[in-house]
Design a protein around this nucleic acid. Sequence first.
DNA 1: CCAATTATACTCGATTCGAGTACATTAGGG
DNA 2: CCCTAATGTACTCGAATCGAGTATAATTGG
Lengths: 304, 304
Amino acid sequence: MTGIAQYTGTFLPSGLAPAELIAILVAVTDNQPRVMTLRGGEALPSGPFESSHRSLQSSLRAWIEAQTGHPVGYLEQLYTFADRDRDPRSGDVETSQRISISYLGLVREQDAAGAGRPSWRSWYRYFPWEDHRDCIPEEVPRIADRLTAWAGADPLKAQRVDYLFGLNGKTWNEELVLQRYELMYEAGLVDVPEFGLPMAGDNRRILATGISRLRAKIKYSPVVFELMPESFTLLQLQRTVEALSGLHLHKPNFRRQIDQQELVEETGEISSGTGGRPARLFRYRPAILEARMLSGARLPLSKS
Amino acid sequence: MTGIAQYTGTFLPSGLAPAELIAILVAVTDNQPRVMTLRGGEALPSGPFESSHRSLQSSLRAWIEAQTGHPVGYLEQLYTFADRDRDPRSGDVETSQRISISYLGLVREQDAAGAGRPSWRSWYRYFPWEDHRDCIPEEVPRIADRLTAWAGADPLKAQRVDYLFGLNGKTWNEELVLQRYELMYEAGLVDVPEFGLPMAGDNRRILATGISRLRAKIKYSPVVFELMPESFTLLQLQRTVEALSGLHLHKPNFRRQIDQQELVEETGEISSGTGGRPARLFRYRPAILEARMLSGARLPLSKS
DNA sequence: CCAATTATACTCGATTCGAGTACATTAGGG
DNA sequence: CCCTAATGTACTCGAATCGAGTATAATTGG
């Protein structure tokens, strides 16, 4: 090692790039994890980066709240892309590199989610193989077959297919949304119509990144409560976590974990039963937020 | 919610920003976690983002390898900053927003780390309160005192101090490097000379981000091996993990966890003992990489 | 009154994990 | 040669966690 890196105090013209923000806005309604989309469900909301704000975070927060009318409870930076060939379908002659900074935002359940709100779509329409709440979706074996054929005699590829899709004794890992999508991309399966809706450019890949991150996050951080109404029953909370993780949870274990972590407290009220015994209502304990945000809030999962 | 966000197909001039890459390059030598610095240890290596490469990742990788002469085993994007007032000390008249994309890179132990390599510095020189391997550093109680005074009668602040610095029965959490630094920043303690070396601009904060991320990562991912030589003893491996986490590890438990995860295999050779019984040499099992990268590789920690 | 549905409490066993103890093997000094 | 220091290696134990199953309580609707 002879050369020592020099700090370049000035910036070359090549250091100038158009910057764009992309938001993955998530809400859960009717036990479905929904994401805000534009252009007929083919694009994630995005816009140019305005330098009038103090930081990226506040810039995006203001923009989202202006557009949706809802406050964003939780906002987290995901990833910054700058690939030249990001949007192969785009008709733009412009081929210069664009910097795209993606964010994950959580907003509370939309009140009165009527039929006239087509912009929020269940993310399982884009990734139908990811919903394992009731059963293993029919897409999984069909994708697995085509992936196995694609892997051929390559043992490493075959092992990767097994691991990512829970084949041959491997267990399904719900966090690997992005890795599964990328494997399918390599095998040329992402544009097969029966394997989920398309999106413009790499928006579907960015969405997969967001789902992966959120599924990982809810296991050690109480971000779920950013998606819940003020008061809720424990089953509602469980259904929300199930919607996000795409897994079925063991009810007694879920309750045990929730109350031994002291994340919630009773409101004293009781839900108007939709059938069956009425449930107690709980609210999130904001006092404990700081501490729990820093430590971990594990969630109990279970198979099928 | 009346307004629906519009996708802006074009980019305003405000969407143009200078882009810069910042690298946190980490190596472990002499049981010290070291970071590559420039300008007398006051800056992290950085440079303008060149659009001649295919992606950010490959752009930065090429740049690092050209500068250091060492291949980068592991490279991960950390965070993208775009705050206007990033470098308050800078004499630049230029106040326009700059986008800084930070990366964490791991390089193998430098061979023959003589005295003539001043650019690699132990990160504990910047964060002396973070090294809990032998004992709790003397800085911790002194910082704690000043933070408690700063918190005053505010119970939330006091609780935060306790939690972050392991006071009043709370246990030290080694991952919260960034949160501790930010708390000290709020309390105006980061520029106290006895509390660590300074860095230009927010470089020290970025370094804290990288340490936090790496300390979290080694718990569930086998990235440590990117810092190890080809063959190593189990104690060497343990010392490296200890250097990074700043914690003392329980030897029997460490070995148990390592071999029951089947991350390593014996080379058959035996180390030339530096004293004491000679140890068997191991190498990382690259075949298992894919699988372990995806699942988790927990590490056993211990207190005091 | 009964069935269906939901809520809530409890038990059991496997696994993990922190912590401690014991023993083995080498180098080096008296 | 023996003793000590330093390192390597193998066990054990108990607490905590966690997946899974079972049982019981309360309510609605026929």
